[in-house]
Amino acid sequence: MFECALIQGELFRKLIASVQDLVQDGNFMCDANGISLQGMDSSHVALVALALKKEGFVEYRCDRDVTLGINFANLAKMLKCMGAKDRLSIRAQDEGDSASFVFESEDSSRVSNFELKLMQIDQEQLGVPETQYKAVIRMPSSEFQRICKDLSAIGDTVSISVTKEAVKFSVGGDIGSGDMSLRQSESGDVDGDDSEKVMIELEEPVQQNFALRYLNNFTKATALSKTVTLSLGTDMPLVTEYKMDNLGSIRYYLAPKIDE
C-alpha cells in the first residue's frame, strides 16, 4: 500500500505542470524515502528529474516499493478539479491498476475523489553521474524566466558565459544580437532577501550554448521556487534546479549545442 498527503495540493499540480510539456508520461517510483521520477523529451535532448522527500509530506506510507505509470496530461485533467487551497492525498494498492487522488478543502466541506488509470511504461532510465561543475549560479527564478522569454524573441540559441563577476546571456538572430549580464551581488550586502541575489561560485570561466526552447520549457517550474540554480561545465549538460523548501527538487538537464 502506498499513501501520501500534501497540505498544499497546489504544489503537486504545479509540479505536474512543470513536467508535462517535456514528457508525456512517466513512472513515479515510490519507496520508503520518497517519490522520484525521471523522463526525457522525445528527442533525448532534455531530461527532467523529480525527487520528493517523504519529510515534505504530512503523511507518507510506503510498505513496498511501487511504480505508478502516469500519463501527465490525464493526471493534469484531474488535478484541475482541485481547489487552490485543497489538501491532496494519493493512494495506490501494491498491484493495482489505478491510483486514487483525493482533494479536500481546508474546512473539509468539500471532498473530491478521482481514480486515475495507471499505465505500463517501459522507459529508459539515464544514469546521471555525480559531477563537479565549473560554475554554479543561483539567481531569482523570475529573472531567469524573463531572460529566457525575452531572448527567445530574438534568437533560438543562448550562449551562457560565466565569470567571477557576472553571468552573461547572449543571443543572436536575423534582426541582430544582444546580451544581458547579471552581476554577482555584493557579499557585504546584508539588506534584502537572499532569494533576490545573484550568487556565482566559479572554479573556471565557462561558456556554452543552449536551445532557448528547452530553457523556456524549464521555467514552467518558476512557480515552485523563488530561486533557480544553474550548474555548468565544459562540454556537459546544463543543470537547472528548482528547490522546494523541504519537499525536494525538480532538476532539468539540457545537452548543449556545439559549434560545428
Binding site: V45, L47, A255, K257, D259
Partner: peptide
C-alpha cells in the same frame, strides 16, 4: 551554426 547534441552522449542508459 551550432549543432544540438543529445543527452545520451553524456549519460549512460541503465
Amino acid at each position: 551554426p551550432c549543432a544540438q547534441v543529445t543527452l545520451t552522449n553524456y549519460f549512460v542508459v541503465t
